[in-house]
Design a protein around this nucleic acid. Structure first.
Lengths: 350, 350
DNA sequence: TTGATTTATTGGAACGTTCCATTTATAGGC
DNA sequence: GCCTATAAATGGAACGTTCCAATAAATCAA
């Protein structure tokens, strides 16, 4: 049953009594071969247990149909959803994307990119790991392989990026907090080696500026972008002499951490301290209390990134426009009711 | 800057003034070439912007260094952790695993497997999609490519499986519930087209049998393995004339759903109804109330699966032993205190 | 010096496809 | 019947690597 050496089109040719060229034509679904011949060949293919060798084919064809997706943290459902969105599009185009995880490690990322390039990918969609050096994509660009950044981008790079409107999202969230009557605000989590961090922090600061929150009333606590990081941020912030009463968190994980730390202190998110997250992962809605968060539609961004990639491949270019995805604020319970007027209820829409 | 046609070892050879064979040797890190020559060649490689063509190489070498990982649901953090565990092992072995998602769709799975095979993978680690037909791996086995099932397995298949001890996990959880004084028990979620379902349900039933819960006092509600499914299960169960007071859920997602439905009815998990989950995802610990769940160590299982795969590749075999991973019960708040003795507190360990 | 041995390097065939240029078979027009 | 047009099938040269056998150069023993 187990075939010895693996079968090739020559084995098929022999089996079917035709030439290898004919087999090749059948494999490609060419209309040039007589239907009966095609049937005969297809039967032989089945009989010998043939597996198409794409590597050999690419040697001549020059463009493969594989696309690499490089994700910095697969365990974050946010990125997993991004991946799922992309897959939807590629599947329809008959492409199977290969996903690789870098675990936020630039060295690992280097290996992964190298491996994908050696495999001869037609394109690369990347959410770069933190600490990626500007030169990391130089060779790939030189090789003419199209690259798209998703969710994250690099400080100064010509590579097109598909990302949510981080600045506006942060602005909306901050405005919401101020609208609730908060006057001493914090920004929790993240660190300045991420472009996204600057975008989100920038939105926060601009809103503060525009809506009259003085620099003295802003607390900025950098930290890990995880639950643990969020807990630490809250502890740090509350230890200050004049602690903030509300925080915009770098992402939802940080927000969950902050809420956890609040609970540990016997405080309640919403009632005693307002928390807003970023990304609006599925869990946000089901959390207790439900988390107000900036919704970014990651699956939609994934689809968009995939479309851009397809277009780049089709038009054989390595350049494309950036795309900034719309965001909205999903208002839930973690900011409580209006702080001035008791019993306000339904506030800002998004 | 952008190279025209992509560089090959012949271009390197010309640039460095050596033969292609020498370049090939350098590429493979052979000790046969003079160090100075190697340096010269490596410089040329850099200069021409060379990208190794693994497809061409595999044409001769016959074994690639890529391993495919086929996951049925990437958005479930449980599977993402499995993937991460595998990656740890493969990374150390200098292998980059390519992950592909099937979204629980057998047709998609077929495509994905085909594509991976055409790419010439050295092995396949698969968590099969629900509804996978027994014949789906026939061709792959015939081609002599080693396959390992992870987390899930197929009804009658000779392919080795790495999975947690589902039966024992369910038994432990059920025992725990009965120990708390519950006498009318339910099993929520899942459906009988999954082998895992039979394993878990089997453990539940065996515990009931052994500990004196009669068939009349057991409620079994099949359902989607998601939050939504869990909500539906709870509604169905509570609608019965003599409703259960506790439930073992097929997985954590179902458990979260059940707890959500309880809350909607103004009931509280732990106090009014006991809930146990399965898988012990990260969220279980942080949920409100914290979810008691069967911990399966998915990352550990991923590592194990990867090791088995490496061994199979090394010894050129397609057979290996199954591996059943140890499980333990992570006791938290969702089952409340002991039902008979008030104020019991610390109960069963795992 | 000569031959044997070791060390570096090299040409060429092979791997499994595709695709172009041909060849062979079939049909049509007169 | 012959010539041309169309349809179907084919051989051979590429593609970029590896690896074997062979060569060339350097070292050593006598």
């Amino acid at each position: 049953m187990a075939s010895r050496a693996k079968a090739t089109i020559l084995d098929i040719a022999r089996e079917a009594g035709v030439s290898k060229s004919t087999v090749s034509l059948v494999l490609q679904g060419s209309g040039l071969i007589r239907p009966e011949t095609a049937v005969k060949v297809r039967k032989a293919i089945e009989d010998v247990g043939y597996v198409y060798n794409r590597g050999a084919a690419n040697l001549r064809k020059a463009h493969s149909n594989v696309i690499g997706m490089v994700i910095n943290d697969l365990t974050n459902p946010f990125f997993a959803e991004l991946a799922v969105g992309m897959e939807r599009v590629f599947q329809a185009a008959g492409i199977v994307p290969f996903i690789a995880n870098t675990a936020e490690n630039p060295v690992r990322q280097e290996e992964v990119l190298k491996s994908l390039m050696e495999q001869g990918v037609a394109g690369l969609i990347v959410s770069p790991a933190r600490g990626t050096t500007p030169g990391a994509f130089r060779r790939i660009e030189a090789a003419g392989v199209p690259v798209v950044f998703a969710m994250r981008r690099l400080p100064e790079s010509r590579i097109p990026a598909i990302a949510p409107d981080n600045h506006r999202g942060a602005y909306l969230a901050t405005q919401h907090l101020i609208g609730k009557g908060h006057r001493r605000l914090a920004f929790f989590g993240g660190s300045s080696d991420l472009v996204v961090y600057h975008d989100r922090l920038g939105g926060f600061l601009e809103a503060c500026e525009a809506l009259g929150i003085s620099a003295a009333d802003r607390t900025i606590v950098e930290g890990e972008t995880s639950r643990r990081g969020g807990m630490a941020c809250l502890e740090t912030a509350l230890a200050a002499p004049e602690p903030p009463t509300a925080a915009l968190c770098f992402n939802d994980a940080v927000a969950f951490g902050a809420m956890l730390a609040l609970r540990k202190r016997g405080l309640e998110a919403g009632a005693d301290f307002a928390v807003v997250g970023f990304d609006d992962v599925a869990e946000a809605e089901h959390y207790m209390p439900a988390l107000t968060s900036v919704a970014v539609d990651s699956a939609g961004l994934g689809e968009r990134a995939a479309h851009v990639m397809l277009k780049m491949i089709q038009s054989r270019t390595t350049r494309a426009e950036d795309h900034i995805g719309a965001v909205s604020l999903a208002v839930r319970e973690s900011c409580g009711p209006d702080r001035n007027a008791r019993g306000a209820g339904m506030g800002d829409a998004a």
